[in-house]
Simulated scan of single mutants.
Amino acid sequence: MVTHVFILWHVRVAGENGGDAKLIGAYREEAGAQAAIARLLSLPGFRDHPAGFQISICELDRDHWEEGFISAKEALSLIR
């Protein structure tokens, strides 16, 4: 029985304008996420930011965010 998956993201931080995060996919095994990185590394954007790949483990059948949320605009107003 699968109890978790491996989530592959690509995150790029870009100066004052922030950055972006892309959800690449979810894989049953870490090897699947690593294989996806190998396939994507030669593509435009990814090849320019090869360190942006991140693999995280996500446990299934549980809440991963258990608090409320605020918008990005609201968050920015808190730090100004």
Score class of each variant (00 low, 15 high):
L8C: 10
S42V: 13
S56A: 15
Q54S: 11
V5I: 12
L41P: 05
W9A: 05
G25A: 06
A26Q: 11
A38W: 06
A26P: 02
W65T: 00
R62T: 03
A33M: 01
A31I: 14
G45T: 01
L40V: 09
G15W: 10
A26K: 11
G18D: 02
H64C: 09
A51W: 07
A38M: 08
G15L: 10
G18M: 01
W9S: 08
E30H: 12
N17T: 06
C58F: 15
G52M: 01
W65D: 03
H49S: 14
E16M: 07
P44C: 03
P44D: 07
W9H: 10
D48S: 11
H10I: 01
F46S: 04
N17A: 04
R47L: 00
W9V: 00
N17P: 07
A35C: 06
A36N: 07
R12M: 15
V5T: 10
D48V: 00
F6T: 00
G25K: 05
R62C: 14
F53R: 04
H10K: 09
V11G: 14
L8S: 01
G18V: 00
A51K: 14
F6I: 02
R12I: 11
G32C: 08
Q54K: 15
P50R: 07
D48I: 02
D20C: 15
D63H: 12
I55C: 07
K22W: 01
Y27W: 15
Y27L: 08
G15Q: 04
A36L: 03
I57A: 08
G15A: 10
V13I: 09
G45H: 02
R39L: 10
G25D: 06
A36G: 10
R62S: 08
D48W: 07
H49D: 15
R39P: 09
F6R: 01
L40S: 02
R28T: 07
A14E: 11
V5K: 13
E29T: 09
Y27M: 10
H10M: 11
L8A: 02
R28K: 14
D48F: 13
R39E: 09
G32V: 02
L60T: 14
R47C: 04
A51G: 05
F46W: 03
G19R: 02
A33E: 02
R12F: 05
K22Y: 05
S42G: 14
I57E: 09
R28M: 09
V5C: 00
R62E: 14
Y27T: 12
R62I: 08
A21G: 12
L23Q: 04
L40R: 06
H49M: 05
F53V: 03
R28N: 14
H49P: 10
A35V: 13
Y27A: 13
A26F: 07
E59V: 05
Q54L: 12
V5P: 11
I24A: 09
N17D: 04
F53Q: 04
G32K: 01
I37D: 01
L43P: 11
H10V: 10
L23M: 09
L41E: 01
I7F: 11
H49R: 13
R62M: 10
H10A: 08
S56I: 15
A14G: 10
A21L: 04
L43Y: 03
E16K: 06
S56W: 13
H49T: 06
H10Q: 04
I55R: 04
D20I: 03
G15F: 08
L60Q: 08
V5E: 15
L43N: 14
W9M: 07
G45R: 00
G19H: 06
V13K: 13
V13L: 15
W9N: 00
A33T: 01
V5F: 12
I7Q: 08
